[in-house]
Design a binder for these strands. Structure first.
Lengths: 146, 146
DNA sequence: GTTTTTGCAAACCATTTGCAGGGTC
DNA sequence: GACCCTGCAAATGGTTTGCAAAAAC
């Protein structure tokens, strides 16, 4: 889905070094379809025999999240996961069956948020909308919800 | 803010036993102002000399969250926290300075979500909107963001 | 009296950190 | 060559679990 190069470019733009382990992690992320946990990548790495240490995976994910090349999301279960994404404000719509996620542009949500701010008197600095459901493919498959 | 009895009633409605430790936890939740982590309650309990075990706190929180008497939220930092709330669909607006949270009713968000579903073809089952900012009190205080 | 709940401590799991060696710019 | 990055393994911190005793219904 995402090109590993995009991730590497993000690192480069951020002034970080382009190392082999980071390339590995970028490739692993790209190979993933839906959302993934840090532990998934660690497993993938070991399975592929790629010598990428646990710590490096975590450090690289943190780096990429800071650069907004990937995003950290919270599943309804409370688990943390990551999804690759474009660097612009948006939200994620995650399929609860296959884990694949779609990006959703802000639309009129911004207006809604602004209205809420006015109504409550809060100065709203950030917001996060997370949507969960079944993607079209899984609906057709009649797959059960997780 | 919330009455401890409301929490106990939720337990009762769910067919759970009304025990002393659960009453303690309910009281501790009520005594809290903003959001809190499970660990906070454990500390509170020990500080008060109330004999409530760590495990019981976690189990009671999970129970109450399942009953929707409290809600589990995810802070921007990735930490998990809970807030007491009314049992109806709504969202939380959390103050990043004092941690206090306001409930926000759905408003036109429902329409937005429906539109997103139509546009993407996903069957959206649930959504979660989390808002972070400064509450009116903290704005007046000129408190810095965390 | 039966069934649920508790508390403890140990187990667990994800994530972080210190540090010496190695790679990148 | 200087500085950044990696890997390891150990530390950490939050959360869960097994089990016998205690409490609720």
């Amino acid at each position: 889905m995402t090109d590993p190069d995009l991730l590497m470019q993000a690192l480069e733009r951020g002034g970080h070094r382009l190392t082999e382990p980071r390339r590995q992690v970028a490739a692993l992320i790209t190979a993933r379809r839906g959302h993934f946990a840090a532990a998934d990548l660690v497993d993938d790495a070991h399975r592929r025999g790629a010598g990428v240490g646990r710590a490096t995976v975590f450090r690289t994910l943190e780096l990429l999240a800071d650069l907004e090349a990937i995003e950290r999301i919270d599943l309804p279960s409370g688990e943390h996961a990551y999804v690759a994404c474009e660097p612009a404000h948006h939200h994620h719509l995650v399929c609860s069956s296959c884990g694949r996620s779609a990006e959703v542009v802000d639309g009129d949500l911004a207006k809604t948020v602004e209205r809420i701010g006015r109504r409550t008197g809060y100065r709203i600095d950030s917001h996060r909308l997370e949507l969960f459901g079944l993607c079209p493919v899984c609906q057709r498959r009649g797959t059960a919800r997780a």
